[in-house]
Design a protein around this nucleic acid. Structure first.
Lengths: 185, 185
DNA sequence: GGTAACAGACTGTCTGGTCTGTTTGTATCA
DNA sequence: TGATACAAACAGACCAGACAGTCTGTTACC
């Protein structure tokens, strides 16, 4: 589904690839839409786990501004690995089709968006008060990390060059470092 | 197609909405894929026209770094208008389905990506030498504008809040202003 | 013996695409 | 000017295949 989108992915094809049957599938799922919901749910869970893994990995960075930069660098270092594991993001496929977004999967993705925003905005708000910065809209700034991820997925898909993911996360890191006044060692 | 994706948009539905017939359609197009190509081509042309419109509108800004910031502000001011005209981007829909990307539409989109990159990277390179900045990778930095657009489209779609487009372009502008050392009046 | 898990033939509907026939615009004649 | 010829533009019935979902029967397990 990440490769071809939801509508263009037929159940017959999925079942053949999975080596199972219609009977087995409809025993566990109500419909194809139900599968999309389940896949999205699993994907969102993994996504939020990644968020927390990155937060944990940067927990030792005391300064909140520096931690945000380190947070982005964490994913930058994972960029190539991410792109070799998946050619795009399930969110792109799901958000493309209104029928899916309207059928509940949109809300699931929004959970992920909100989780990222909340955690990062918290750090940014801390950095803002501690560092005397005027960040205007910490929520929007926090959202820009999600935005960069999704945009980079599309750039990679368009150009066929997976390295763009790492490059874009690098750009984001440098932009944030300038904006937050962080000098990296 | 922007709303529902390519595969989920049936010809019958398109023709009903257009008030025309199968005969008329297949007189002008070889196939449904041919329509996607034509739509993408038209969309890319409009996109590149927007790029040049923004360049023209900021032609009076002499300093290249300040011009890049003004360039982003131009689109920021258009943000709400963009989102009221379209709920997402055709690029998202096309890049989601591998069959489309492989059938030539991917190359068309790449033309747009390359056009944006070329024009903005040129300004950034100028800003880099004139301002004594080390921008590391001007191509990647230039790409980040495209990335922000596409990512913001997905964020808007996920949250259902069109205002995110303007907000994200605002974030991008402030990030770039910090990074390029531009102080806005 | 009973139920959850599975297999796969089957069905009604929808899909992209074809085909035959009709309309419409237009160039060419008297 | 008006009749004729002809091709481009269009309409919609039609078709074969693909699709999601159903149903009947079988296996595996407790």
């Amino acid at each position: 589904m990440i490769e071809n989108g939801y509508a263009a992915t037929s159940l017959d094809h999925v079942l053949r690839a999975a080596g199972t049957s219609k009977g087995a599938f409809f025993h566990h799922f109500d419909s194809k839409l139900d599968l999309a919901r389940a896949l999205t749910e699993r994907y969102v869970t993994a996504d939020i786990a990644n968020l927390h893994a990155a937060l944990d990995a940067t927990a030792d960075v005391a300064d909140p501004a520096a931690r945000v930069v380190a947070f982005v660098r964490y994913f930058e270092d994972l960029g190539d690995e991410i792109m070799s594991a998946q050619s795009s993001c399930l969110y792109v496929a799901v958000l493309t089709e209104r029928q899916l977004t309207d059928a509940g999967t949109g809300d699931l993705i929004n959970n992920a968006v909100t989780a990222w925003r909340k955690e990062i905005a918290e750090l940014l708000a801390e950095a803002s008060t501690a560092g005397g910065l005027d960040l205007e809209d910490v929520d929007a700034l926090a959202d820009h990390i999600f935005v960069t991820f999704e945009g980079a997925f599309l750039l990679c898909r368009s150009t066929g060059v997976p390295a763009h993911m790492r490059a874009q996360l690098g750009v984001l890191r440098r932009l944030l470092a300038s904006h937050l006044g962080v000098t990296e060692g």
